[in-house]
Design a protein around this nucleic acid. Structure first.
Lengths: 352, 352
DNA sequence: AAGAAGGATCGTAGCGCTATTATAGCCGCA
DNA sequence: TGCGGCTATAATAGCGCTACGATCCTTCTT
């Protein structure tokens, strides 16, 4: 009896189905099968014009919005790219993310954003949730990640692009430039201007490995020159802000009283240093030459205009997008083009 | 025969299933049913400690990562919040998005980002894809949207928060402040400093309705004062940059040669104006007083330090997060608290 | 006229998970 | 001893869509 009863008194399982217009509704209204609607949505050219019009009409009268969650599950590939940056407040990354987002949106890809605050464990957690979305690709910042993060990503089989840094072994693909070389360029420039008592002003360099690499590239180049310069690194533990720049300049002056050139890990720091010079009546570039990094919004217009190194956040974003889209379109880039050097440009202005 | 044959020669439909560790694998290894694994993942307290440990072990040995796409489909609510801002390059929004992202991540919500570039049709497209993710909430910037966007959002039943502006009829909830009042505060401040020939410098005000509202609030207040000031609005069609600030100051000086006070729609513009004053030997605040908007990174440290109005992008982010999380936890906020005024603060510094 | 070839359309089995119901095991109390 | 009332676990039916074949029409050959 029990077996029978369990079949008989089965109430129609009510599921809380979100009341949403589904593809089925569209199909019914357009008098075609759901498959045809799906096909129309993915490749409109594959269905007859007549059916296409009917479907289009149905979609618009019903206000149908496809459910990408369902689609992603069925297709085993969600139309999502997960981007993890240290901080979106940082103008560098804001620029890259912005470009990347535009480029990817043009192909129907969504961007999921996470920020790690320069913490590797936080990054690991972000990667974990990122992978939970079965993303079409994961974009990370820099080449330093903890072992677990690398393992997770490798195991996932998802395309991975590391951006804003090259010069190490990427997990999969990398787009960026060499930070030691940026430091070296700054050093060479200051040396070429006859500066011999220089400093590198950076912030948060315990966590920001890329800034630290710019610093060490700077020091190395400054010291191995024909006429080497005396050289210090000054670090501010907090974020790279204008105020930090002012503080750092003062600390540098304490360490090297006859300082005649500085390179900054960020234009904001450079701007702070410029302001501090102005406050203290130090002439720029006559007494101290200043080189920044980032070529931010204000760098061309400040007083004096700032010599800086432009890393091209835009270009990085474009190249990352290109790699991702190529991968989605099934092109396997040759091993050689899996690492893209976007280079850097030193823009000489009045501050040196 | 056909009916039979169609049944007989049915080949086992091979589906390209992503080769991924599934919950089923975990269940098998832990010797429990998939339901128990699911339950454990959602409310660990509901399964026995023994089973829990077994499951945890299985998860870690297999390196299982739950598939949120499948989960979202089954649960009819994806753990995603879609945020649409005009531009992530804008420091205001970067700050809000950053805060929002942190607050939401703490509760396991992901942020999907889109930027509209101040275009209402582009915004509509973004809303459309946003809704396709069946998000837990949608966050928009400002109260100006086209009719279709409003319709889509209303029809979807998804919680909607409009941020960075109040003073109109929100679609659902709003967190922000009154832009006309910001303009009025700036005007009152300049008037209080005895300025009577003032201008408002803004950028992109055809598209950026909020900036336009700050401008009109400014003008209105300046003109209705006891001793009204002569007042102009100067607009730059391009983005709000430092360079635009320099250009705008010059244009303002052309229009009002004896200009003695300016309010800027953005601190970047104000900074550009400060630089231009310095270049031209115009004393700030003696000749011209400058009020900015945004209290950006450099505003406290520039020369002279900038009097500005702080809108608290942070606070907006926090409040938006609070509303969203309350909604997810099932609390229906009373109608009164569906509009939150985060206010604004005028910070007086040396430039006025 | 019969069949081949090709394009459009349809039917259906999952994608991996959660919500819901069903069931088994256990305790306490009459 | 037996029966409610628990709690912990299992079974099952989808969520809405896409991929894969299968099927149904045309049109073109010979």
């Amino acid at each position: 009896m029990d077996a029978r009863s369990s079949l008989q008194n089965r109430t129609p399982r009510k599921r809380r189905k979100m009341q949403r217009v589904t593809m089925m509704d569209v199909a019914k209204l357009a008098q075609v099968s759901p498959s045809t609607v799906s096909l129309y949505l993915r490749k409109p050219a594959a269905v007859s014009p007549a059916a296409g019009q009917e479907i289009a009409r149905a979609i618009s009268t019903l206000g149908y919005v496809p459910n990408l969650v369902a689609g992603g599950l069925a297709a085993a590939s969600s139309k999502v790219v997960s981007i993890i940056v240290p901080s979106i407040r940082n103008a560098f990354f804001a620029e890259t993310v912005s470009t990347l987002q535009s480029e990817l949106a043009a192909e129907g890809l969504q961007v999921i954003l996470g920020h790690s605050e320069y913490g590797e464990d936080q990054e690991e957690a972000l990667v974990r949730t990122a992978l939970a979305w079965a993303p079409a690709a994961v974009v990370l910042t820099g080449l330093s990640h903890n072992a677990e993060t690398r393992k997770l990503l490798r195991a996932s089989g998802v395309p991975v692009v590391e951006m804003w840094e090259i010069g190490g072994e990427p997990i999969d693909m990398a787009v960026g430039f060499s930070h030691p070389q940026v430091g070296a360029s700054a050093a060479r420039h200051l040396l070429s201007k006859g500066r011999r008592r220089v400093a590198f002003l950076g912030a948060r360099m315990q966590e920001d490995h890329r800034a630290a690499k710019r610093a060490s590239g700077f020091v190395e180049e400054a010291r191995r020159a024909a006429e080497p310069a005396s050289c210090e690194i000054v670090n501010h533990p907090g974020a790279a802000t204008v105020e930090a720049g002012s503080l750092l300049l003062n600390r540098a002056l304490q360490q090297i009283p006859d300082l005649d050139g500085i390179a900054c890990s960020n234009d904001l720091i450079a701007l702070g240093a410029l302001f501090e010079c102005q406050r203290q009546g130090i002439a720029v570039p006559d007494n101290i030459a200043v080189v920044g990094f980032g070529d931010l919004d204000f760098s061309a217009s400040c007083i004096p205009s700032l010599t800086t190194i432009r890393p091209s956040g835009d270009l990085i974003g474009k190249e990352v997008a290109r790699l991702i889209l190529a991968g989605i379109h099934g092109e396997q880039p040759p091993a050689a083009s899996r690492i893209i050097d976007t280079g850097h440009v030193l823009i000489e202005r009045r501050s040196t």
